[in-house]
């Protein structure tokens, strides 16, 4: 097999790296990030480009050490990167799917995953503490290997394995063969159709709702610690929307990972989804508006409530309320087993 036949295809990722080192990409990222930090769309497109460049360099390094890629593959992002909802700082969540078999090729792609992990860490994406990275055997498989693992997760049916499955559903191909990931996601969707209790179990897996507003209608920022007065917008604000739309996406076999795209595709069928997108986007914009003050990975999750004016607070309260409503309606729908 020749190198050109299995490298990432043109249009789906860089054929060759534009930069000589991870440090160059890091410099590029640092020089550009502040200009676009307040525009979530542009910022996420830029993240994609920086990560693509990192991957191109990583693949080149592995190929120079271990020879050309032995099979076609796709590198995909998960978590907020998969959903294109990253802030200025974001940790790594990614995986690889390749053609062929685990026995033959997994070791090669784990090496690719390791190089990507180290490259991304250098560029400024901290390693995932939960090891959701292509360098871990759980997140690096052949197409058949992935299907087998997913079947195993569903069969095992523990909180942890279902959490893996939910993480996977937010995958988005960044480089390589988009059909590979689509095929595996379709496998998940098919399993959900065949086994209605799976959606119920996944719904139960994401039951916890962080409180954002107290009984008297006041916002509830942190009252202790370094972020006193700030609200963890990811846990409190985004997650109810993200969790709800992920469940609906599985039910409706929607390939897209983005929360807003999932809303677009389900709002016609589910009236309780209508009108929610604006609130979700508003919170993304709100977080982005504080991006200049965000210096660390932890910072990006917090919005300082005391710096919001009265209208902004009202808008945030409304967004939190609508998110809670969406979350509860979705869970009710999932757990009732209605079609």
């Amino acid at each position: 097999m020749t190198k050109s036949s299995v490298s990432p295809q043109e249009g789906k990722g860089p054929l060759s790296p534009s930069y000589e080192s991870y440090e160059d990409i890091k410099q590029l990222k640092e020089s550009q990030v502040n200009e676009i930090a307040e525009d979530p769309m542009k910022l996420n497109d830029a993240h994609d480009e920086w990560i693509k460049e990192t991957i191109a360099l990583a693949i080149q390094k592995v190929e120079s050490e271990r020879g050309p890629s032995p099979a076609h593959f796709a590198f995909f992002l998960m978590g907020s990167a998969g959903r294109k909802e990253q802030a200025t700082f974001s940790d790594q969540d990614h995986g690889i799917v390749f053609d062929g078999s685990d026995e033959e090729h997994q070791s090669y792609f784990l090496k690719v995953g390791e190089e990507i992990r180290e490259g991304m860490a250098h560029v400024g994406y901290p390693r995932c503490e939960g090891k959701v990275m292509a360098s871990h055997p759980r997140w690096c498989h052949s197409i058949d290997g992935w299907k087998e693992q997913i079947d195993g997760w569903i069969e095992t049916d523990t909180w942890e394995t279902l959490r893996h499955l939910l993480t996977f559903v937010d995958a988005r191909t960044l480089v390589g063969e988009t059909e590979f990931l689509e095929e595996i996601k379709n496998h998940v969707f098919q399993k959900a159709q065949e086994n209605p209790s799976l959606l119920k179990r996944m719904s139960e897996n994401t039951s916890y709702l962080h409180k954002g507003v107290n009984a008297f209608g006041r916002l509830l920022p942190e009252d202790k610690g370094a972020y006193t007065g700030s609200m963890h917008i990811k846990d409190v604000g985004f997650f109810p929307y993200v969790h709800a739309m992920r469940l609906l996406a599985i039910k409706e076999s929607i390939q897209e990972a983005g929360t807003a795209s999932r809303m677009d595709q389900t709002s016609e069928k589910y009236p309780f989804v209508q009108g929610k997108k604006d609130h979700f986007n508003h919170m993304l914009d709100l977080r982005a508006s504080f991006s200049k003050k965000q210096k660390t990975y932890d910072d990006v999750h917090y919005v300082p409530i005391e710096e919001l004016d009265k209208d902004e607070k009202q808008q945030l309260k409304k967004a939190l309320k609508e998110g809670k409503n969406l979350f509860q309606q979705t869970k009710k729908h999932m757990e009732s087993g209605d079609q």
């Binding site: 202790k224 610690g225 370094a226 006193t228 007065g229």
Partner: peptide, 9 residues
Amino acid sequence: FNKDGSPNE
């Protein structure tokens, strides 16, 4: 307490 006076648990 932190330098800005905010309390820690």
